[in-house]
Amino acid sequence: MELLNALMVLMNFVIVPALTYGSQLALGALGVTLVYGILRFSNFAHGDGMALGTTAVILFTWWFQSLGISLGPVPTALLALPFGIAAAAALMLGTDRVVYRFYRTQKAKPVILVIVSMGVMFIYNGITRFIIGPDDQNFADGARFLFTVREFRDWSGLDEGFGIRSTQALTVVTAVIVVAALFWFLNRTRTGKSMRAFSDNEDLALLSGINPEKVVAVTWLLVAALATIAGTLYGLDKSFKPFTYFQLLLPIFAAAIVGGLGSPLGAIAGGFIIAFSEVTVTYAWKKVLEYALPEALAPEGLMQLMSTEYKFAVSFMILVVVLLFKPTGLFKGKAV
């Protein structure tokens, strides 16, 4: 019974939040890994691309809300998502046309593209603040909870319980669908296969008649969709603040590198590894241990390894350890 209570506390404060956060990171890391695999540079503008895509979703959500359109218990943002994706896709394709393509035709070395993407990052950053401002924005509506802690406790009769917020459930379900669709696209369709071929061996892909500009355009479309979905889910689950999205860049890159840059499967695994590490290291284990251990061993302190302000240090440490000991990542990514 005591162990069950410990498990419930663990579910409520560690497993459910980490699964949610991990799904969001995985979607973000997939976008980063696609750009790395196809365009061969690390896209530092990804976090702010997420922010800008989410901004578009928020604006559409507010518009729909003002028109009185809603999806009942499901957040209106879900209805606005396709419009946000379209806006983000237009933005990224436009950026590629105006900025990245110039460097491609110059055959610029990838490290130059990395710096270029930082410039793009600052531009996106500024546009986002122009449009929606630097403050917190709340755009979540619909039902708050799938079920609350209290409802679960009453139903199970335990001392402790766990609740699932509707945004958490939505995040995980959406992530599963999006990832399945992405893998189907990459592994089953002709265009998806041509993207993998291009990522594998650019010269041979060109000699096989694969059009590089089409591959690049499809990549940006996918990245725009992934970034907007990840950003919207994060914003619904927590809150939307442009600076937070910029900061998300570190855990997202850590996830992509831990999994192996260029490997979509690795990006997903990396996302969950980073999320679970961050949450478990910064969680105060006192309550769980009180239930799990005999009374004599009950801890006095909070049993928190690190305060939550240091959560970015966790991704950074994992990044350093991976680069030292398994530089290609867990799933044999392209390089590093």
Partner: peptide
């Protein structure tokens, strides 16, 4: 061509191999 300066390209954590196809 300064765009093709190869300095810094050994850092595979930010750039991938195989860029700049010979075709």
């Amino acid at each position: 061509n300064p765009y093709q300066d190869d300095r810094g390209n050994r850092d595979r954590s930010i750039t991938a191999d195989g860029a700049g196809a010979s075709v």
